Amino acid sequence: MMLFIALILVVLLLVQDFLLFFFIRFNFKDYSKRNVDLPMVSVLLPARNEAGTIKACLKSFESINYPPQKIEFIVGNDQSEDHTGQILRGWSNKVSNRTYVEIETRYSHLNGKANALAQMAQVANGELLLFTDADCRANEFWVEEMVSAFEPQYGLIVGVTEVVGENIFERLQGMDWWITLGMIKVTADLGKLLTAVGNNMLVSREAYEAIGGYESLGFSVTEDFALGQAVMEKGYHPVHQMTSRSLVYTKGEKNFFQLMRQRKRWMRGALSLPFRWKLLLVLQALFFPAIITVLVFNIWLGGLIWLGKIWVQAAFIKKLTHNCKGKVNWGELFIFEVYHLVISWSTIVYYFWPSKINWKERRY
């Protein structure tokens, strides 16, 4: 009986993985258009205690290929305790289309980032609002690509964020993130965006005002997810633009404990998903105890199934990175399976561990 249940679980996950690969291979949609009228865009960048990373982000902004008179940069210092504010103020004073905002504790019902974005959006002039984070770097075509993919009925567009790794631990995080983005892409191309991604998303002014802005939302440690859900509830149909031109780059977490703190926050957001999506996430987590059960009963059958799962998963990641002109190492794709086993179950344990979410030196 135990073997039968385990086989059912691993087969279901294999079917899920095959379907993900099938839809990425045959239902992948590129929403970009060429020769579109370029509207006014406001790029919003909140930052808290990012003195060590913010300069690279600002430098990437300076290389963005978009008409200067049709783009503005709103940079916000979210009560930093280091030199972030000085860096942002100095950068914003150099060019007229840059605006510096000193963030106040104005919306106590929001998390720190949502509170900052609410205030920054109020001074933005763009028809489209483009969000990213201080630890990200944009490519020169980022703004143009996101704008070219936009249609009013979408309301919101999610771009692509690649985790760039200096070591194998960070590169494995990147593979994990490709799987997450792939699931978002598949669901979005099927007409139902799974979640927004706050470090690379575009929202129309119309959609943002229709939901009442961030200040109208309730508390959430995943403010991007809350914004995306609110936009969809207003009847918009967000899409996911996954191309090399819509890429921004970010860094992985430096160690296991920082990664656990990040994943605890993400898991809080995941538990707000509809039941069917939570069921799929549970199915993924149950694969490991199920495949170990199969291995105990029949090592050859279990090994064959596990290799099949690794191959389909690797093909899925390779296809995603190919579409975005990224690169992954085949050998590390197999190492990733061990990483995924450890991190997925550690995340579950740490989520239920009686501790608060620590995010940017704030606890929730």
Results as ranks from 00 to 15, higher is better:
2 M>V: 15
7 L>R: 09
12 L>C: 13
15 V>S: 11
18 F>N: 04
18 F>K: 10
19 L>T: 02
20 L>H: 06
23 F>K: 14
24 I>T: 14
25 R>Q: 14
25 R>W: 10
27 N>W: 06
29 K>G: 07
29 K>W: 07
32 S>A: 05
34 R>D: 14
36 V>Y: 14
37 D>R: 11
42 S>K: 13
42 S>E: 11
44 L>T: 00
47 A>T: 00
48 R>D: 00
48 R>M: 03
48 R>H: 11
53 T>E: 14
53 T>C: 15
56 A>S: 09
59 K>I: 02
59 K>A: 15
60 S>G: 08
60 S>N: 12
63 S>Q: 13
71 I>P: 15
71 I>C: 05
76 G>T: 03
81 E>Y: 13
83 H>E: 15
86 Q>R: 11
86 Q>H: 11
88 L>N: 05
90 G>V: 02
92 S>E: 04
96 S>T: 10
96 S>V: 12
98 R>E: 08
99 T>N: 09
101 V>T: 07
104 E>V: 03
104 E>C: 05
110 L>Q: 01
118 A>Q: 12
127 E>K: 04
133 D>G: 09
137 R>I: 06
154 Y>K: 05
157 I>M: 04
157 I>Q: 03
158 V>R: 08
163 V>I: 15
166 E>K: 11
170 E>M: 01
172 L>S: 00
177 W>V: 06
179 I>S: 13
179 I>R: 12
182 G>Y: 09
183 M>E: 15
185 K>N: 06
187 T>S: 05
187 T>D: 11
192 K>N: 15
195 T>W: 12
196 A>G: 15
198 G>M: 02
200 N>L: 05
207 A>W: 12
213 G>I: 10
226 A>F: 05
226 A>P: 15
240 H>E: 02
248 V>S: 10
260 M>A: 14
260 M>D: 01
260 M>E: 12
265 R>S: 10
267 M>S: 07
285 A>H: 01
285 A>D: 09
287 F>H: 10
307 L>M: 11
309 K>P: 13
309 K>V: 08
316 F>Y: 09
318 K>D: 04
324 C>L: 14
328 V>T: 03
331 G>F: 03
331 G>V: 03
333 L>K: 05
334 F>H: 09
335 I>W: 02
337 E>H: 00
338 V>D: 00
339 Y>A: 08
343 I>T: 07
343 I>N: 11
343 I>Q: 04
345 W>V: 08
347 T>W: 01
351 Y>K: 07
351 Y>M: 06
355 S>N: 04
359 W>C: 08
361 E>G: 03
